[in-house]
Design a protein around this nucleic acid. Structure first.
Lengths: 137, 137
DNA sequence: TCCTAGTTTATAATTATTCTAAACTAGTAA
DNA sequence: TTACTAGTTTAGAATAATTATAAACTAGGA
C-alpha cells in the first residue's frame, strides 16, 4: 500500500512539488492492486465523483503529462482518438479488443521473442511492445 | 504498376463506386514501390499540391475510412493525436521514432515469436503487431 | 511571516475529425 | 439519349480531445 509519505517521496524524487492535487491523483492511480488503464476522462471521473473534492480538468491533464514524463505511468499505443495510460510501467504487452476498446495486460513472460531486427544506425531500442488485437470467435 | 483498370476493379470489388476522387486517391496511395505511411493531413498535401485538381478534406477523410473498412489500408497503432495509416496491409511490424514521429516497416520475418498467450475465452486473435520504439544511442 | 517560483484554475484557443444537408454524378433503365 | 436515383462530394458547422493563457493561489525556504 502506498502511504502518503511514500507518495510524497515519489513526487519529490521526480522534482514534482507534492501539492494536494498531485497527492490525491497519485493515490487514486497507484494505490490499487491491479494495474489501471485510463484516459484523462476516466481519471477525471474517478477523481471528481459527486461530492468529492474538485480538481480541474486542466490539472488532470497537467498531472498525467508530468507523471508520464517522470516515468510513473506510460502511454499505451492504440488507434483511438483519446490517449490511454497505464500505471504498469514494467515492460509488458496488451490484448486490445476493438469492440469494447478495452486493453488487458499480458505478462512480459507470456510473450517470447527469439528474433528481433537491429535498430537503424544511431538508434537503440527503447521499448518493445506487442499488441494482440482480438475479434469474436 | 497499377493501371487505371486495376484500380477501378479494386474499388468495384469492395463496393466502392469508382469516382474520379477515389481513383485519384487510390493512384496516389497504391501506385508506388515503397509502402506509404500517412495521415489525413499528409495525404491531403499529396493530393492537393499547388495547381492540382482539388479534392475536399471531407472526401479525403471519407475515402481513407472507406479504404480502411475495405481492407485496402490499415490503421497503425501509435500514441499520436493523429491517425496513421499504412498501405502495407500484410501483417508486419514497425519501428517508431518518437523524436521524428516517423514509422518504418519491419518485415514480418524479421520478428519471430515463439510464445504468445491464449486469447480470452470467446475471442480469437485478429492481428499481432510489434512496435519497437527507438531512442538516440 | 514574507517571498517567489511553481502550480492550479477557468476559460479560450487549437487541432483532428465527424456531421450536415445541399449539390453533383455514376450507372441503370426507359 | 435522356431521365432517374442512390451514392458521393462538398463547404462549412459542430464536436471532441487536448493545449495555451494568464490570473490567483500555495509550498516551502529565507
Amino acid at each position: 500500500m502506498h502511504q502518503k509519505k511514500e507518495i510524497i517521496n515519489k513526487l519529490r524524487s521526480s522534482n514534482l512539488r507534492p501539492t494536494k492535487q498531485r497527492i490525491l491523483i497519485a493515490k487514486k492511480l497507484f494505490d490499487r492492486k491491479e494495474t489501471f488503464h485510463f484516459t484523462a476522462e476516466t481519471l477525471n471521473q474517478v477523481i471528481n465523483k459527486k461530492g468529492q473534492s474538485r480538481i480541474s480538468l486542466a490539472t488532470i491533464y497537467n498531472t498525467v503529462e508530468a507523471f508520464k514524463k517522470a516515468g510513473h505511468i506510460r502511454e499505451i499505443l492504440t488507434n483511438n482518438s483519446k490517449s490511454y495510460y497505464d500505471t504498469n510501467i514494467k515492460s509488458h504487452h496488451h490484448f486490445y479488443d476493438p469492440e469494447t476498446k478495452k486493453l488487458t495486460d499480458i505478462d512480459y513472460q507470456e510473450v517470447v521473442l527469439n528474433k528481433i531486427p537491429n535498430p537503424p544506425k544511431g538508434k537503440k531500442i527503447k521499448d518493445l511492445e506487442v499488441i494482440i488485437s482480438l475479434q469474436k470467435k
